[in-house]
């Protein structure tokens, strides 16, 4: 054998799944392409500006404070894009940038980077923005218009407010339901012709992309399924109780960020339980919190907080849902 090609000695197993962490991450990034395209179809260039700014904020922070090559694993990219998708189209892009930076800095790097964080960084960034700039974050431009038209004051100077804009804004379907008891046709929700954040408009596109990821086992299908099931069951029970007061399950499922949240945010591997039983509990918990916040809370939308709160529960869930080790507990066939 030639000396230029020495043998290597590694620990077993010597085979490994073709999936690698960067591959999973970048596949998720790619699967967000259609969602992004849909967002830009509805909200024009503003959608791309906002997402790009959030992503840039995330990447710059990861590069600056992170350790060298961690940009390549793609996780900061996902955080940035997902954060961007939860924002309204008319947001000043400096806010999106700040959100991305916060998401990575305080959501991820302080815990030691990839894999160590407790809260979904994108949602933490979103919650930060929501708390910091409540007005800007609840100004929802209506979809439509020409592609090049800005949907609000995207280009406001850093630290300055959006100022007076002439963009046509409208309430989200959930806002309409909560504050004016006005419904929105479910077909509009499904195809995306309603007001709302960039990524929450078209349930159809998100579900398709999510199914693709689930088939590749890049997301844990149990989580979205249990979220949807919990929301549907609870909503149906309430709807049967008092139909005029509580909206129908279909509306609850397809309005707001539920589809995006359940598919892309709740399934973030780092911040969801590692056990399958835990995943069911986690998803069901999110579903219940979403319904509780939407119906009895002061906010129209509860997906973000539902997921963040359950993120906080994850270490606890992991602890109590440890699998029963083979050959312990109730044992079959002992003689």
């Amino acid at each position: 054998m030639s000396s230029s090609n020495p043998l290597v000695v590694t620990a077993s197993p010597h085979l490994s799944t073709p999936d690698s962490t960067p591959r999973i991450m970048w596949t998720v990034v790619a699967s967000l392409g259609p969602v992004l395209a849909a967002a830009s179809y509805f909200f024009g260039v503003s959608a791309l500006l906002v997402v790009a700014a959030a992503t840039l904020g995330a990447l710059v922070t990861e590069f600056w404070f992170g350790k060298g090559r961690t940009l390549l694993d793609g996780s900061a990219m996902i955080t940035g894009i997902l954060l961007g998708l939860t924002l309204p189209a008319g947001l000043p892009i400096w806010m999106a940038f700040v959100g991305g930076a916060f998401a990575i800095g305080f959501g991820k790097l302080i815990f030691g980077g990839l894999g160590q964080n407790v809260f979904n960084p994108a949602l933490l960034g979103r919650a930060f923005l929501q708390a910091a700039f409540p007005v800007a974050l609840t100004t929802w431009p209506k979809p439509g218009g020409t592609w090049w038209e800005l949907r609000g004051d995207n280009l406001a100077l850093p630290l300055m407010s959006a100022g007076a804009t002439d963009a046509i804004t409208g309430a989200t379907p959930l806002g309409l339901m909560k504050f004016e008891h006005a419904g929105t046709p479910v077909s509009d929700l499904f195809f995306g012709t309603t007001g709302g954040s960039l990524g929450e408009t078209s349930a159809l596109v998100i579900l398709l992309c999510g199914t693709y990821l689930a088939l590749k086992n890049y997301l844990n299908w149990r989580i979205p399924v249990s979220v949807f099931a919990a929301v549907a069951i609870l909503a149906e029970m309430l709807h049967l109780l008092d139909a005029p007061r509580f909206p129908a399950p279909a509306f609850m499922l397809f309005s707001g960020g539920l589809v995006l949240g359940a598919t892309y945010m709740a399934t973030d591997m780092v911040t969801s339980p590692v056990t399958n039983l835990g995943s069911w509990i986690f998803g069901a918990g999110i579903g219940v919190l979403v319904v509780v916040i939407r119906i009895w809370g002061g906010l129209a939308e509860g997906v973000m907080y539902g997921i963040l709160l359950m993120n906080a529960m994850v270490p606890f869930i992991n602890r109590v849902t440890q699998p029963r080790v083979f050959g312990t507990g109730r044992v079959t066939g002992v003689r």
């Binding site: 999973i24 894999g115 160590q116 780092v270 339980p273 995943s279 699998p323």
Partner: peptide, 10 residues
Amino acid sequence: YPCIRCGRCL
């Protein structure tokens, strides 16, 4: 890479 707690090992 760092563990991303995907749960596949479980």
